[in-house]
Structure formats: C-alpha cells, structure tokens
Simulated assay, not measured.
Amino acid sequence: MEARDLRVSDAEREHVGELLQRAVGQGMLSLGEFTERMDSALAAKTRGELNAVLADLPGMQLNPAYGAGPYPQPAVPSAPVPVPVPPPAHPAVTGQSVPSNVIRGRMSTVTRKGPWHVPPTLYLDTRMGSVTLDFTEAVMQTQVVHVTVDDYCSSITLIVPPEATVDLNGVDAVAGSASNKVRTGPPYGPLHLVVRGRVRFGSITAKHPFGTALRKMLGT
C-alpha cells in the first residue's frame, strides 16, 4: 500500500489546520480559501486527501512524525500564528449588519450576563476567542431556546439556572470537547437549551453557577 493511501488521524487533521492558519497569516490563502480547505481537511480519510489541501503551499506539508509520504517534508515552524478566520455562510450572518440573535467574536472575549434579552434562537459565530453566556438573570421569551454554534478554536461557556436543562447531543466536536454538567432534560424548568452545530479545536461547556451544588446541600 502506498503512503498516500494510509488512513489519517485526528492529530494529523489538527496539524494541517494549524498549517492552513499559518498560510493565511503569510498571505498565501484568502479567508474563503481557508474555510474550503479546512472543511476538506476535516473530511479527509487518507494521507493523499489530506496532503491535497497543502499541495500548492510551499513549505506546508504533513509533519514527518506522522509517517513518510509521497511529498517532500520541509521544516515547518512549530508555533502556529493566530489569524482570524471567516464567518460561516449562514444566511443570518451574511448581510452587512449583524442580527440581534447572532453573537459574533473574532479573537476576543464575548460576555452576556445580567438581564439580557434572549431570543428563541441564537447563533454563535466565533473564532479563537472566549464566550460566556450567563442565563441566570436573563429575560427569556420562550422556555426552549435553540442555539446554533459555528466555532473555531474558542472556549464557550453556558451558565444556566439551577433548574434549567441543556441538550448538547447535537454538537459535533472536531478535535475539541462538549461537556454538559447539568441535567439534559426533558424540559421542566424555566429554561431548556437545545445546542447544535460544530466546535473545531475548541470547547463548549454547560454548567450551573459556581456554588450551586453547595447551596443545594445546605438547603439555601
């Protein structure tokens, strides 16, 4: 079997993602080309398919530690250069203005807390940042809120009231994590979050406010 026909691992796909980010930072790829090639890399099953997204980028090839391949293996700097990446092609975020139910972040910290108004649907469009959505004092329009996530390399935290429930089953974590530390449902309390979408090289966590478990133990 030729090297290009060998199956690839998540570590190899993540390595190629770092190389593509570096290529954007060096001006070799546009943001649109980055998105197309990143999607191809995440879907690649063989080393040949994975190398195809790098074939025309000088100095950008799979790390030799992942095995020999049919392409030359020039030295590549180990530290990735953080660069902004493009928004998704969702109709809600393609216009000039950002709708009120869209939360966007690019290499930044985004926080919603206190009595903020929560629409029935939310879209998180985030890149290489930190996002905290605190629903404990939020003004809800509906009991069930649908949250769609499109993220690269961010840390997303959902803080919900003690009786709330969260469903993270629709989240596709690619080289990342989705952690639910609260009850999943069915909805019976003041809030039920239904979260779906994709988290790439990042994390999403649903949890109660700090000290909730202790207050329950003390009956306060």
Results as ranks from 00 to 15, higher is better:
residue 1 M to T: 13
residue 1 M to E: 09
residue 6 L to K: 11
residue 7 R to L: 14
residue 8 V to I: 15
residue 12 E to S: 06
residue 14 E to Q: 09
residue 15 H to T: 02
residue 15 H to Y: 14
residue 15 H to S: 14
residue 17 G to P: 02
residue 18 E to P: 00
residue 21 Q to V: 04
residue 22 R to G: 08
residue 23 A to D: 08
residue 23 A to G: 10
residue 28 M to P: 00
residue 28 M to A: 10
residue 29 L to N: 04
residue 29 L to R: 05
residue 30 S to E: 08
residue 35 T to I: 14
residue 35 T to C: 04
residue 37 R to C: 11
residue 38 M to C: 03
residue 44 A to G: 03
residue 46 T to N: 04
residue 50 L to V: 02
residue 51 N to E: 15
residue 60 M to Q: 12
residue 61 Q to D: 09
residue 63 N to W: 00
residue 71 Y to P: 00
residue 72 P to W: 06
residue 73 Q to K: 11
residue 74 P to K: 12
residue 77 P to M: 06
residue 78 S to H: 03
residue 83 V to N: 06
residue 84 P to G: 15
residue 88 P to T: 15
residue 89 A to K: 13
residue 89 A to I: 07
residue 90 H to F: 10
residue 93 V to H: 01
residue 93 V to M: 08
residue 96 Q to S: 11
residue 98 V to I: 15
residue 98 V to M: 10
residue 99 P to Y: 01
residue 100 S to V: 12
residue 104 R to P: 11
residue 109 T to Q: 12
residue 112 R to C: 05
residue 119 P to S: 11
residue 121 T to Q: 15
residue 121 T to S: 13
residue 123 Y to G: 00
residue 127 R to I: 03
residue 132 T to L: 14
residue 139 V to N: 07
residue 140 M to E: 03
residue 142 T to V: 07
residue 146 H to R: 15
residue 150 D to Q: 09
residue 151 D to Y: 08
residue 151 D to G: 06
residue 152 Y to L: 01
residue 154 S to V: 12
residue 157 T to N: 08
residue 158 L to H: 07
residue 159 I to R: 02
residue 159 I to V: 15
residue 160 V to M: 04
residue 162 P to C: 03
residue 166 V to Q: 04
residue 166 V to I: 09
residue 169 N to P: 00
residue 169 N to Y: 14
residue 172 D to I: 14
residue 172 D to C: 09
residue 174 V to C: 03
residue 178 A to Q: 08
residue 178 A to P: 09
residue 181 K to A: 08
residue 186 P to G: 10
residue 189 G to P: 11
residue 194 V to D: 07
residue 195 V to K: 08
residue 204 I to A: 03
residue 205 T to F: 02
residue 206 A to H: 06
residue 209 P to V: 12
residue 209 P to A: 08
residue 218 L to Y: 08
residue 218 L to K: 15
